[in-house]
């Protein structure tokens, strides 16, 4: 826990500082009008969305005479209870990873595969991004680092065929975990979204309970477009959880609040860097705290 908190705190230190500056001195309760405006501005600049930021501040000011604690509470209450990951009774756990271009899908799969390997599980990864230049080579490096196995076909192969092969092999050889990497695609591309729907269908055809989870990777620097992204991917691929990456950067990931709330989706992990260890389990309380000034963090 401490490692999640310190890593994330590190990654988000800039937003912490920004908010901390907005609330000078020790007292965080009974803020002045200007201080509340500054907090609202801070939330907007963290990509929480203008409407939501306004509503959150409004609500917090009405409760308990207006305190940061109240604000924090209402932010946390927006995040759904995180149910345990849908694990199968027997046979492999099948995970499909989706998202728009360049969000960090392949890298995150490397990190997740490593995590499962460290738990002593066998992991098979399918390279269903057969389109992007050197996508398979990139995944192969991560799979090797993780000590996992991989199913690949030639460039330009049918992604659904790769997914099908991967699941079949995963079941036949009794892997604990099977992960399918997919090509990035923008949610507006009807053809590519249909292709993704087919990948999902074929996975179910190869193994009726699969996929057990569909995790959508969202870049923590993304603005309001992320709402449309999740809306579409959920419709087409059945997104069941989110992963938010690049929280080690200047992006503050405030969009997470809207995504989790609107779609009732849990955030499973956050990415905080480019190495195998830079994956943290998401913790709502700590995430919100890391966005708020120190005084109210505890």
């Amino acid at each position: 826990m401490s490692s999640f908190f310190s890593r994330l705190k590190n990654g988000l230190s800039r937003s912490r500082d920004a908010l901390a500056q907005m609330v000078p001195g020790g007292s965080v309760d009974a803020l002045s009008e200007e201080e509340w405006i500054d907090i609202e501005d801070g939330l907007i600049m963290a990509d929480c969305g203008a409407e939501l930021s306004g509503a959150l501040v409004h609500k917090a000011r009405k409760r308990r005479g207006g305190s940061i604690a109240a604000l924090k509470e209402s932010m946390i209450s927006m995040l759904p209870e995180v149910a345990p990951v849908n694990e199968p009774a027997g046979g492999p756990f099948v995970l499909l990873v989706v998202g728009v271009n360049g969000t960090g899908k392949t890298t995150t799969i490397g990190k997740i595969a490593t995590m499962f390997r460290q738990q002593g599980k066998s992991v098979l990864v399918g390279a269903a991004d057969t389109f992007r230049a050197a996508a398979v080579e990139q995944l192969a490096v991560w799979v090797e680092r993780a000590g996992a196995d991989m199913v690949r076909q030639h460039e330009g192969a049918d992604p659904a065929a790769v997914a099908f092969d991967t699941i079949k092999r995963g079941v036949a050889r009794n892997y604990d975990v099977v992960i399918v990497d997919t090509a990035g695609r923008v949610q507006t591309d009807r053809g590519l979204m249909d292709e993704l729907a087919k990948v999902r269908r074929v996975i179910t055809k190869a193994y009726p309970e699969a996929p057990h989870e569909v995790w959508q990777v969202v870049d923590g620097g993304t603005g309001q477009n992320a709402v449309m992204q999740v809306e579409k991917f959920r419709e087409v691929a059945g997104t069941s959880g989110l992963i938010v990456t690049k929280l080690d950067g200047s992006g503050k990931g405030g969009i997470v609040l809207q995504l989790s709330h609107k779609f009732g989706l849990p955030v499973r992990y956050v990415g905080v860097g480019e190495t195998l260890e830079d994956l943290m389990e998401f913790n709502a309380e700590e995430f919100i705290s890391s966005l708020l000034p120190d005084q109210s963090a505890d």
Partner: peptide, 12 residues
């Protein structure tokens, strides 16, 4: 720059 970038585009 990714056109989907949010508020942080300014700092970037």
């Amino acid at each position: 720059l990714d056109a989907m970038t949010g508020q942080t585009a300014l700092q970037i």
